[in-house]
Design a protein around this nucleic acid. Structure first.
Lengths: 249, 249
DNA sequence: TGTACATCAGTGAACGCGCGTTCACTGATGTAC
DNA sequence: TGTACATCAGTGAACGCGCGTTCACTGATGTAC
């Protein structure tokens, strides 16, 4: 039970494992997931292709490891940006969104793996769900905190449209059904949002990644001149729709 | 110069060309673009693989043909939905958005080609730009018409936030720079939108496809219980943000 | 209307490629006595 | 501390696969006289 000092073999194993992952990530980042081949990774790391099987039982397992590593890296970047942004929700929102975009532009192939078309023949296993939620939860926390702040600061006025009990256009009573799973998920994390705000948060989350996706995949050619400026404009309005004001540092 | 009656050869050629495209589309729809192989298409259509080269000089040209066919089919579906929705902008908006979702869910592989990760090694040529714009232009037209209607019906009140001259949060004067290309593009089509509304239209367009993308690619698992209901909630709020009310038929 | 030649759709074999994965092997590292 | 055996990382060859593309060919369709 006493954890013995790691043997040389164990140390070597860990280091080679890390090298393979690193080489795979480097390829993934500028090639995209469908192009990623075990053999190429083995070549990069200076081994024969069959040796990789000592570390990953199949290509799919390599992909899973990359998926988890990427979700974790993105999640960590987003959490760090949040933490560094100070207490004000508007500033945190901007920091978080910008961190997502910055990471994504720097890692287009990884972005394609996480948010692009599914890789043919590959289905992500359950283990990827939890790291994937780090980013999403950070967004939710910012929104929840913003709501808490504005609710305690000025109970009725200035809380935005979400202060009003009735949603603007939607058929009444249906929102909850559409996002029932989301409500349950939030509760599981000890969080809570009014249904209308939860819906708006899902929308904002989707829009942030949608904008990055369109930017990366070339759909804004001819429409958007300055991706960074446009992104800031977008997240300013998303904050607005969420009932608080974005603050750019 | 007189267009002679088409020869049997020409008729046959056209029909085989169409068969190949149809077979390719069938494969694309449920396999996705990276899986699409010339040889498989040839097999489906009952020819030897080299024969396909009489019709498409390379796999890339096949992809381009599919891209154009798909953009056109989506565009046509959207335009038809718009035309069938009557004159009211709120109803047209709902019809258009739902048509996009319906087509996308029915054609996941095609959706991945049009809006998913880029196909490795393939770059879409210019000819795809124009068919791609059919859908986008339809959206813009609905928004423009909605604005025209509300502007003439009730000049100052009830026009939504976009009636006010100053955008809510954004740094002043920067919007135009971010979407300058979009303004120019609109003018080229004889359309015009206030900058703020153009930005909101780009956002809404992005969100519609972002939502479908997240739904198709599995990112809503655990958050959204009913994709169709959620989509309707989303487009209701997008209409709201665009200054008019969605009308569900 | 009939013949001679040109065009072109489709065939079948072949090219070279890179892939994921398996397997028997070797040599180094670790363990038990 | 030294020896005998077990473990396991990495090798190299091989498997079967499907791919995009080329090329010389055949036979049918079209055209010019």
């Amino acid at each position: 039970m006493a954890d013995r000092a790691p043997t040389a073999r164990e140390l070597a194993r860990e280091s080679v494992h890390a090298s393979i992952l690193a080489a795979a990530r480097a390829r993934l980042t500028d090639e995209g997931p469908t192009q990623l081949s075990l053999r190429a990774v083995a070549r990069d790391v200076g081994m024969v292709s069959s040796a990789v099987y000592r570390y990953f039982p199949s290509r799919d397992d390599l992909l899973t490891a990359l998926l988890i590593a990427d979700y974790d890296e993105l999640g960590a970047a987003v959490e760090a940006a949040d933490a560094a942004a100070g207490p004000r929700a508007g500033a945190r929102w901007v920091a978080v969104c910008r961190a997502i975009r910055t990471w994504s532009l720097a890692h287009p192939g990884d972005f394609a793996l996480l948010f692009g078309s599914p890789v043919p023949g590959y289905a992500a296993p359950r283990e990827t769900v939890e790291p994937a939620s780090r980013t999403t939860l950070t967004i939710v926390r910012v929104v929840a905190d913003a709501q808490g702040a504005s609710a305690s600061a000025s109970p009725s006025a200035s809380a935005g449209r979400h202060g009003s009990p009735v949603p603007p256009t939607a058929a009444p009573g249906v929102v909850g059904a559409a996002v029932a799973d989301g409500v349950a998920s939030l509760h599981a994390f000890g969080l809570d949002l009014p249904e209308e705000l939860l819906l708006r948060t899902l929308m904002a989350w989707t829009t942030v990644f949608g904008v990055i996706s369109f930017e990366l995949f070339g759909h804004y050619v001819g429409s958007v001149s300055d991706g960074a400026a446009y992104f800031d404009e977008v997240i300013a309005r998303l904050a607005d729709d969420l009932g608080f004001a974005a603050e750019f540092g």
